[in-house]
Each structure stands twice: as C-alpha cells, then as structure tokens.
Design a protein around this nucleic acid. Structure first.
Lengths: 209, 209, 209, 209
DNA sequence: AATGAATGAGTGTTCATTCAT
DNA sequence: TATGAATGAACACTCATTCAT
C-alpha cells in the first residue's frame, strides 16, 4: 500500500500500477514478478505500464524511491529542528518518540519496506543513491544528536558511530522482526520497547560501580 | 565458496555446480540467475544440472540448507556442551568467544549467507523449515545460557527473550554490516566488538546508581 | 524532403508528417519505422497521423505515389509534346537532355526514390498500380520515340524494347549507383554520362566495318 | 531455396530454419517477417531458432552471406584462372559465357538474391562487408579482364570502370528484370542476350565510320 | 482538428526442463 | 553418467490503432 500523498499527481491507472507492483514485488520479489501479473492485478493493459514507466526497473525505482526518502526523512537536516525543537528532556525520551514515530510509518508501508530491504543489495545504483544521498545525511544528524546529549552529560563518552550503530540496529531489528519478518507472533510493543531502552541505557550487567 | 566437508560425497561436477550456483545466487539473486549461466560457470552441460537436482529450486535448497544448519550449529543442543563445557567465567567472555567464532564462519561463507538472507523471505517452505527446526532450538539454547548467567548473578533479571533479541540483533547487525553489506568500509573488528560488548553490558547511560 | 507543390493543399501538420515519414522510411525501411517515431519527428501527437491517414500503409502510399508519377511524368503522353516538341536533332541529344533532367529530379527526391525502390517489391498493390498505370504508358512513349529516331535513320533496326531496356538500365543504374547507393564516392557526372552515351551509340567493339 | 552444398554441415532443423527464413525474407522482407512465422514454417519451436542463431539479425546474415560470396565467386581472384584459363577467343564469348553461368546461379537462388538486394541498403554492416571484401576484389578482377581484351585490341581504349559499369548494369538489370522483378512476363533468354551483347559491342548508332 | 492515454496482439528473446544419444 | 539439441511457455517491451476529451 502506498500512502495517499505520494500519489497526488498520478492518474488512477498509475496509482493502480504502483499499488499492484508494490504488493507483488513485496510478495515475490522484483525478479520473480512479471509485468503481465502487475498489469492484471492493476486492471490495466500491459502496454499501459510501459507508457508510464519506460522499463520494469524504472517502475521499481518509482515504487521504492519515495519510501527510502520518507523512512529517514524525520532525521534529515531540514526536519531536524522539528525533532530537536521539541527538546526532549532525556535521550531516552527522544529515542522513545522516534521509535513510536517510525513504527507508525512502518505499519503504513510494510510492503514497500520489504521491497527496499530485499532489492537494495541487487541494484547497485539504488544502493549508491541511498547511501550517498540519504545514509550519510542521516548518520551525520544522529552524530549531532548523540553529541547533544553527550554534552548534556546523559550519554557516555564513546565514539558516537558505535553508539548509533548498536542502538540503531537494536531498534531497527526489533521493528523488522516485529512487523516484517515475524508479524504473526504475539508482540507487546510498549513493553518490548521499554525493555530495549532499558538495556540500551543500563546494559545487561548487574554490577554497576 | 563451500567448505570442503560439505562436499565430501559429491562428484567433481556436483561440487562445481554448487559452487557456481552459490556465487551466482549471491551476486544476482536466485530468480535473476539462469540455470544456463550456472552450467556455463560450472563447466558442465545444461542437462547435467537437472540430473543432480530435479529443479532449480532443489538446487537452491541444496545450496542453502547446509549453511543454515552450520551457522547456528554451535548453539544447537548436541553442541551445547562443547560451548558451556568450556565454562566461560563471565557472560561477556562467552559472548566474545561466540562472536569471534561466528565471524570466522561468516568470512568463510559470505556468499551463502547472503543467499540465505535474501531468499528466505520469498520461500515460505525454506523459512518454515528454518524457523521450526533450527530457530526454535537455537532460541531455547540461548534461553538456557542466559538463565545460566542470570543464576550466576551476572545478568539482570529480565525476560530472557528480550535480552537475547537485543544482544543478538546488535551482534548480528554488526556482522552483517561489516562483512555482507558494507565490506568495503574500513573496520577495526576488535575495537568495535569491545565497544558493542561494553554498551550491552553497561548501557549508554552515565548515571549508574 | 518533398517538393513544395506536392504539398499545396496540405496543412502544416500533414506536411510535417509526410516529410518525417519520407525521411524515416528512406532511412530504415517502411516496416522498421514506427508511427510513433514519425509522430515524434513530425512534432505531432500519435493520434494525429491516423486522423489524416487511416493506416500506416495509406501513409506509405501517400508518400510514394506522387514521386512515382513525377519521376516518369516527362515521358507520359500529356507531357510528350513538350519533350519531342523541342525536337532534338539527334537521339543522343534527346537522351542527354533527359538524363540531365532526371538527375535534377533524383537529386531533389533522393529519399522518396529510395523508398519506392525498396518497398515496391513487397507491396503488390503498389507494384500493380505502378506497372499498369505508369510503366506501360512510359514504355509505349519510349517505343514511339525510338521508332521516331529509327525512322530518321539514326538508330539500328532492332526490337525497340531491347534498345529501351539496355539504354534505360544503363542510365538508371548509373543514376542509382551515383545518387542512391554509393553517393559518398567521387563522381564526375558530365564525363561519365558522355562515356555512357558513347558506349551506347558506338558500342565497345573496335572493329567497325 | 538454398543450394545443397551450402548446407552440408547443418542439421536438418537448421536447414529447415534457413530455408523458411530465406523464403519469408524474400517474400515479405526482413523486418516484416517474424521469428514465430519462421519457426512455424520450419516446423520447429521458436526457441530452436535462437539456439542456432543468437539474434534474428544473425539469421539474416547466415542466410545472406553465402549468396553474396557465391554470386561473385567466379570473378574473385582465386577463381580467375578457371575463368580466363578457358581463354575465350573474344570478349563477347567471355561475356556470353559469364552471363549464362550467372543466370543459372540466379535461377537457383532467386529468393536469396531478392533478399540481398532488398536488405543491403538497410544494414550498413552487411553493406560494408560486401563492398570491402567482395565488391572491390570483383571490380579489380574485371579491370584486369577488360585490360586483357583491350590489349588484344578487341575493346576500345576507354576508362575500364565505365565500361564495366555500363556492361555490368545492362546485364545485371536484364537478369533482375527477367528473373526477379517481372518473372511472369514472356522472355526469350537467348535472343535477348544476343541483342544486349550486340548493342554493347556495336552500339545503337547506325553511322559507323 | 488535435491530442495522448489506453489497448492487446505481437515482437524478439530467454527460460527451466526434457530426452535421445 | 553426461550431453546439448529441442521445446514452448513466459518474458519485457513495442506496435498500430482507437477514442474520450
């Protein structure tokens, strides 16, 4: 499913094509999905797809690009003020807010996110675009945020990249496991998130000195 | 590359086919790799592949199954004693040893691991097999280990699954990022691992009381 | 390029379509040219072509018909008087004048002539139309002209059709080789034509008795 | 139809494909012939065509190359001795022999020759190959032959290229008109050839002095 | 009159799989 | 056991043509 505002300028047919492509790519993978299947599911002629997207690859990019941007948008420069402007008292509060916000987004864009995860490794052009234009910005923003809370004395003085990576992967892995890979299991979001945050802030060790 | 003992009972041709398939599946994905490519790379006739593996899918399974088992083998019941038998003094030591051990394995089986990660979501049969026969066993073993160190008073009394997941994802994500997704970057394994372990044991918070 | 008077009653769009079609048919052949290419080159919408020409074939006919008529027009009945009226003293003068006149025409209509030559064999309807309505008239005119100069005692008494064919093919082949097939070579028109005329009138044999 | 010796090393299927392609290309043109038609006519699966010829274009070349070589083979260097070895008393005898020989060839390879004539202009690679590797050799051979008979005093002292072109085009045009373009008409080969030769040797002029 | 989105049959080509040798 | 020619369904993509605007 594609969120509504992404489709504002598209015709009904185009929306149908994008929706069908999204669902099928997510379900079977890009290479294993045929354009004729997409056409059938979208209720259009096969030729219509190629009127709007010159190649199947272009269709993939049209499906995948917006979600890559949107997933990380809140942390990209222009949105930083919004986040930091709210001035969370503790780093924990900041992270909690961010997790909740991103979970909402993932819930709404499950299929798209599956596609990005699956296809990125096989399309070096997509990967490059993602890494260079988005990944680096995001990492830089997080570095500032970490430093912000290190300055406030709330976070240990450790190389920020490692902190980001450990936290990021813990949170990202949870979201992925919870919503993408094992959605059928019985989860209690709030409790889990609190536990993860607790571990990340206090560690699993009992001996504090 | 496939480790030698996996191929003991196979003919030279079969080894060639498995090697070729492994490399190509890892590079381009299962669906985007043709059997004729595999045959060419393996230096056999197209028909020969189908003499040994009834279908292309069966070839995928033959490529993927052993690595799934082997990656998690050290934690599966019959191997548990080996691990716990070494009786690591602290949980940290245990984890450090395990990380180092798995990193060696990943280095040797890069292609295979990429394939598993990429293809598992699209092959519900593989996924089921993996989850039911391997995943559950592994999780159970880890639960015992966590409880073992909780009983020794080294780990906080928290729901073990969350502990396993946070730790597992942190470590797994690092290994993946380091060896599979961004191998081109400049990494210092030892330092990174120590930092990750530090965060996991002590948390990122400064106020310990 | 199409000469201006052929387009007098046509709208600008139609002229554009005919010009574009002419160039593309000449360059790539009728079957290998798509209507969308023609539309693009003509700067009109795809639909516009089919507003003026019911089918692609009809467009070909519209492109090709005028040039077929015009190429042979000077020898068709109604134009004969003009030609013979000038009353060339010798058959050689007549031929020389005709060659020069037709070379001018070919130069101006290169593309169109290529199309006719290439497509005629594959469109039996076009071929029939050409042979019946034009070819026969032309041949008849030439027969009269040959007889005219045979009566004047300038040409040997031989079956006129053979004379026409040998002369026609020599001249036509030269024009084709010169302007259509090998235009890149370095030609000296005047000299070549004189040599051809010399051979045709005197033959290549040295023993005249 | 393809002459038997061209097909000696080919499988039955390949022969069928070449024959079908030849007939269809000749009838409808290369671009207007689909590979599925060829497959149907040849009684093979469509995939079989592409097992033997990587692309449709390669099939065209396989169809067309041998005939281009063979048509002009008798005049190419290594075959020259055979021709001149017969030592024709007069140039006329030489030409007559050559015409008869080439007419036999054309009769046997009608379809192929049509294809060459029609497709050469649209395939600049084929054209180049033909011009450079064959056309030049042939012209050089003919220059020697013309000089040979000029030295014997049988042919006027004129730039050989023009002589070759006028004669060549006259003969070639006759063969084409007779067998390729208007085969349905009623022709008397022997008489026509004698008349053409007479014109070419004596010219059409009556005033011999 | 002109547009261009939409069509669906058709294109050249690739595919996994079979089978006679 | 191993081959590779043969298959025909499926593939991504293009085409001439239609039609609502």
């Amino acid at each position: 499913m594609i969120s509504d505002d992404q489709k504002q300028k598209l015709t009904e047919k185009q929306k149908g094509i994008l929706s069908a492509a999204t669902e099928l790519f997510a379900e079977k993978g890009y290479a294993a999905t045929s354009t004729s299947e997409i056409a059938k599911k979208a209720g259009v002629a096969e030729g219509t797809i190629f009127r709007h997207y010159k190649t199947k690859k272009e269709l993939l990019i049209s499906v995948v690009s917006p979600v890559m941007v949107k997933f990380l948008a809140p942390v990209i420069k222009r949105d930083l003020n919004k986040v930091l402007g709210q001035e969370f008292e503790t780093f924990q509060d900041f992270i909690r807010a961010m997790i909740e916000n991103r979970i909402e987004f993932v819930k709404k864009n499950l299929s798209l996110i599956r596609i990005v995860i699956q296809e990125l490794p096989f399309h070096s052009d997509l990967k490059k675009q993602f890494m260079e234009h988005i990944g680096i910005d995001v990492f830089n923003q997080f570095r500032q945020i970490v430093k912000h809370y290190q300055d406030k004395g709330q976070i240990i003085e450790m190389y920020p990249d490692t902190i980001i990576r450990v936290m990021g992967s813990s949170i990202f892995s949870y979201i992925m496991a919870r919503y993408v890979f094992i959605p059928e299991a019985d989860w209690n979001d709030e409790e889990e998130i609190e536990r993860i945050l607790f571990i990340l802030t206090n560690g699993i060790s009992t001996n504090k000195e």
